[in-house]
Amino acid sequence: MTQDKTNLNTASDDDDAMFSCPNENKEMTSRDWNRIGKDLLMAGAFEDALVALEDGLALEPENYDLLKNKADALSNIGQKAESLAVYEYASTLYPEDAKMLSFTGFAALENGQFEKGASYFDRSILENSEFEMPWLGKALVYSSVLDFEEALKCYDAALEISPDFKEALFGKAVAVSALGDYDQAIAIYNSVLEMDPEDPDVWYYLALAYDALGDGANAIIGYEKVLEMHPDFDDAWNNKGILHNAMGQFEEALYAFDKAIEIDDSQADVWFNKGYTHTMLGDFDSAGEAFARAIDIAPDFENAYLEAAFAYVQSGAVFKALDLYNKVLELNPTAEAWFGVGVCHMAAGDQEKADEAFEQAIAMDPRYKELIDAQKNKPAEA
Rank of each mutant, 00 (worst) to 15 (best):
S129F: 08
S129A: 15
E130N: 13
E132H: 10
W135L: 05
G137K: 02
A139R: 02
A139I: 01
A139N: 07
V145L: 00
F148E: 06
E149T: 13
E149A: 14
L152Q: 13
K153S: 10
Y155C: 06
L159A: 05
S162F: 10
A168R: 00
L169N: 06
A173F: 04
A173G: 07
S177V: 00
S177H: 09
D183I: 03
A185H: 08
I186Q: 06
I188W: 06
L193D: 09
P200Q: 07
D201G: 10
W203Q: 11
W203R: 06
W203Y: 06
Y210C: 05
D211F: 08
D211C: 03
A212I: 00
A212F: 02
L213P: 00
L213G: 03
G216M: 09
A217S: 14
A217E: 15
I220T: 08
E224I: 00
K225S: 15
L227H: 07
L227I: 09
H230M: 12
P231T: 06
D235Q: 14
W237I: 01
N238M: 12
K240C: 12
N245C: 15
N245Y: 04
G248F: 08
Q249I: 00
Q249L: 13
A253N: 06
Y255S: 13
Y255F: 12
F257V: 05
D258E: 15
D258I: 01
